[in-house]
Nucleic acid binder design. Structure first.
Length: 182
DNA sequence: GTGTGGATTATCT
DNA sequence: GATAATCCACACC
């Protein structure tokens, strides 16, 4: 994932995501067909960004995945930063090491300068925000682990669905693999 | 190292 | 008026 703001590129390899499965997923902003100005871009065609603001101070970014009128998305939870690190440190004064820059959905938005101004951006074409192929070859499936999603305690049975995906060997994921849910 | 609670505001009811 | 797809600081072990 790449941002280019004010001519400065910052980028990293996506190492952690969560899936949100549309109107039937209780954890999704679009559960039950809820549609509003805030989540409008989730209802557009896939390949665009959905950027939202939470907890009065944080932004998070999704890649919209469904077709138009199918509000599915992939929350980008962590990156392995590999370009524009000095700019990331400038945006995140509190970070002391590379693993503090993008190891969380709100952190990576701060590091890449992503705000609601970029809501709806086309991720498939070069621009201020886009997703590029950054690895020479895809990771093997064995490098990726799934587990329960994070921060959605209100979602009842959907809470435990293994819809979080992360590269288990990466030190840049947002937290250690979840210990078994009883 | 681990656990707990405060910050802070857009958005919806 | 309540809630939220989070992060950070600080207390305590």
């Amino acid at each position: 994932m790449v941002s280019a703001i004010g001519g400065v590129r910052t980028a990293g390899v996506i190492v952690e995501t969560e899936a949100y499965l549309g109107i039937r997923d209780k954890a999704a902003h679009t559960y039950g067909g809820r549609r509003s100005a805030r989540n409008e871009s989730m209802w557009g065609d896939g390949g665009h960004a959905y950027v939202y603001f939470v907890y009065g101070m944080h932004h998070c970014v999704n890649a919209v995945a469904g077709r138009a009128e199918e509000p599915m998305g992939v929350l980008i939870r962590a990156l392995h930063p590999d370009e524009g690190l000095s700019q990331m440190y400038a945006r995140r004064r509190r970070a002391n090491e590379d693993t503090d820059l993008c190891s969380g959905p709100a952190k990576l938005c701060e590091a890449l300068g992503i705000t609601r101004r970029l809501d709806g951006a086309d991720l498939t074409a070069p621009g201020t925000l886009c997703i590029e192929r950054r690895l020479a070859r895809p990771l093997p499936a064995s490098a990726i682990t799934s587990g329960p999603r994070v921060g959605i305690g209100y979602a009842e049975e959907w809470q435990r669905e293994p819809l979080r995906f992360f590269v288990h060997a990466s030190p840049h994921v947002s937290r250690a693999p979840a210990t078994r849910p009883s």
